[in-house]
Nucleic acid binder design. Structure first.
Length: 643
DNA sequence: AGACGCTGTCATAGA
DNA sequence: TATCTATGACAGCGT
């Protein structure tokens, strides 16, 4: 919207310049002095009528930075123009213009005839965007053919440069003549452009700006221009912020492309030595880059070991701090788990020593240790164990035989010799639990997997009370059902060992120990259940993480929605203000235009229209008529849209 | 006593 | 084909 305002502003300026060229004095010098002061300086000179301003050239090259490096407003304007160009390359809609302007001049009847052929010739040359030398050449070529007659003005309106300098606009003038034939007699001296292609607004404005050299305006409309320009400058700040913020919002799903785009923009901006807009863009870009860096950090954190986390990305979409801390927490957890594993591997080697030491420890303390170990496999059934009832009710029929086979195992538990339990610590002490437990590297295993060596001797110690009075109760309470079954079946391996040993070793155990079919089936069931238990824990953790991440995403999107709504309101408000100022400027320009009789144009009867190619013409406000109803409706629609 | 959350287990699909 | 993993569904248990 701010850019559209700039379009209007520039178009009006150049309209005024063009009108001055053809004889109508519309002085906007005082307005340009505040905003486009460098332009005025450039336009000074005796032969300025033939010199195209580098206004459009600078826009096409370095957006004016090389031309007016010390004009922050202009830099800002060009930066905004550049942003608009980038947006337009993406297929963004045009900014419709609704300024209708007439080129006011005097054309004699003979001129009309002379201008006919030249019109066609000039039309073929292009759109009036010739460079100065080309234009001068064209001028020299067309002048003998009456091109200057097109620019002939009335004596009272005659301006020196117009007699020859405006010939660079022969194309427009010829089109004016074509239109004159269609206009009423009262408007015979008014010329206007017949086409208003909005697609070429930028080029057209550039072409119009060529005439800026010739006529430093002298009329004052300070209050309008200054207000408009002040609004423009302030609004451009908002524009940059809006652009930056909008890019950030888009980073959710298009992080890479937007980041690349930001980098490109940053490089472009960095290439410029000065310019407030560049600085502001840098600010925005730095914000972007900082945000991107956070993503990069998160990504780096994922690459460090959590990359396989399927929902880590979801977590990263949340607030930076939270995601960062959460990620750090995951990292810390993983690090500590690895440390625990490393330490526990060493503990396996000192199981016997530890057992000897633990034998002197109070059983109650060991019980507390067991509870703190979090061995879900061991303590999940920490409640009153009723192996027979619970297992029979929950187990499938496939295990009924096993259960039947183990029928009475609850009573056999007491008779289970401690041999098997002691074997827990000796048979598979060399099992690399740290390698086998972490099949799924995305989540840390339950703590019990990290302390097998401590738990096993612990259990061995806990077997000590077996000989005591409450020994069986403690054992039944602490052992899982599978553990009890294994003990009942005289399987000399712990559940942990059965679950975590490699499949090759497991198969060797099944084959090499002479187990009965019931024992083999129980071993397979224990292994399967243990692995599935771990898988279920990981699955639930993932599910919770996903839910958490989605909740945070919802909060973030809600905040984004609120911010966008606020920006939308601000944009609408600014758009309305710009539209009003455009209307006021149009009225002012029309009030300063004169027809051949020297009378000002009635703003109610005429309107300014700025075409997409930059040509600004004065068009009459068509009255409601049957023949022109279509065009009138179009104008009305345009007016309605403008309002 | 019912709701709720946690956990273990089973069945199943897919790798 | 066997094994492993992931996940929905179900049930038991504790709060």
């Amino acid at each position: 919207m701010q850019i559209a305002k700039k379009y209007f502003t520039e178009g009006l300026i150049q309209l005024t310049i063009l009108l001055s060229l053809i004889g109508v004095r519309v002085d906007i010098d005082s307005y340009l002095s505040g905003y486009y002061s460098p332009l005025i300086e450039i336009n000074l000179g005796p032969s300025s009528a033939y010199t195209q301003t580098p206004f459009h050239i600078s826009r096409d090259t370095l957006d004016g930075y090389s031309v007016h490096p010390k004009c922050p407003e202009l830099d800002h304007f060009f930066a905004s123009r550049r942003l608009l160009d980038e947006v337009r390359t993406l297929g963004s809609p045009r900014f419709p213009t609704q300024l209708n302007a007439w080129l006011v001049h005097q054309v004699s009847a003979s001129d009309k005839a002379d201008c006919g052929p030249s019109s066609s010739n000039n039309t073929d040359t292009g759109s009036g965007l010739e460079r100065p030398e080309d234009q001068a050449r064209d001028d020299s070529e067309h002048l003998p053919h009456g091109g200057h007659e097109v620019c002939q003005t009335t004596p009272e309106l005659g301006q020196g440069p117009c007699s020859s300098g405006a010939c660079g606009f022969l194309k427009e003038e010829n089109e004016v003549q074509v239109k004159e034939e269609e206009e009423p007699a009262a408007l015979a001296q008014l010329a206007h452009s017949s086409t208003l292609e909005q697609e070429s607004l930028l080029e057209g404005i550039a072409a119009l700006s060529d005439a800026a050299h010739h006529h430093p305006p002298t009329i004052d409309i300070e209050q309008h221009w200054s207000s408009l320009l002040s609004l423009s400058v302030t609004d451009l700040d908002d524009l940059d912020s809006l652009v930056a913020d909008t890019d950030i919002t888009s980073a959710i799903s298009q992080d890479v492309s937007l980041h690349d785009a930001m980098v490109t923009s940053a490089s472009i901006a960095a290439g410029r030595a000065e310019g407030r807009s560049a600085t502001q863009q840098h600010r925005g870009l730095f914000r972007q880059e900082s945000t991107g860096s956070l993503h990069s950090d998160a990504s780096a954190g994922m690459a460090l070991g959590l990359a396989s986390l399927p929902f880590a990305s979801v977590c990263n979409l949340t607030g930076n701090v939270s995601s960062h801390s959460a990620l750090g927490g995951c990292l810390d957890e993983a690090v500590f788990d690895q440390i625990n594993q490393l330490g526990l591997e060493g503990l396996d080697t000192i199981d016997t020593q530890l057992m000897g030491c633990l034998q002197n420890i109070d059983p109650q303390v060991l019980e507390d240790l067991d509870s703190d170990s979090g061995l879900s496999l061991e303590s999940s059934s920490g409640g009153p164990v009723s192996p027979g009832s619970s297992e029979m009710s929950s187990s499938s029929s496939s295990y009924c035989e096993d259960e039947c086979g183990a029928t009475g195992y609850s009573s056999e538990v007491d008779s289970v010799p401690s041999k098997g339990i002691m074997d827990y610590t000796t048979t598979w002490s060399s099992v690399d639990l740290s390698e086998n437990v972490w099949h799924d590297h995305r989540y840390s295993s339950p703590p019990f997997f990290n302390q097998p060596s401590v738990t096993l001797p612990h259990k061995g110690i806990k077997e000590e009370p077996l000989s005591d009075d409450d020994g069986p109760k403690l054992e039944e309470r602490d052992l899982s059902r599978d553990e009890l079954r294994a003990r009942a079946m005289c399987i000399p391996f712990s559940v942990l060992q059965i679950v975590n040993m490699p499949v090759e070793e497991f198969l060797e155990v099944l084959d090499g120990h002479g187990f009965s079919p019931e024992q083999v089936a129980l071993l397979r069931d224990i292994r399967r259940r243990g692995k599935n238990k771990l898988a279920a824990q990981n699955c639930r953790k993932r599910k919770l993480d996903a839910i958490t991440g989605l909740q945070e995403e919802v909060e973030r999107l809600q905040a984004q929605r609120d911010r966008l709504l606020r920006e939308k309101q601000l944009t609408a408000k600014t758009m309305g203000a710009v539209g009003q100022q455009i209307e006021q400027l149009t009225r002012d320009v029309l009030a300063r235009l004169r027809d051949d009789s020297g009378q000002p144009l009635n703003p109610e009867r005429f309107t300014l229209q700025c075409g997409a190619n930059g040509r600004v013409v004065v068009q009459p406000v068509r009255r409601p008529a049957v023949s022109t109803s279509t065009g009138n409706k179009t104008d009305k629609r345009k007016k309605e849209k403008k309002q």
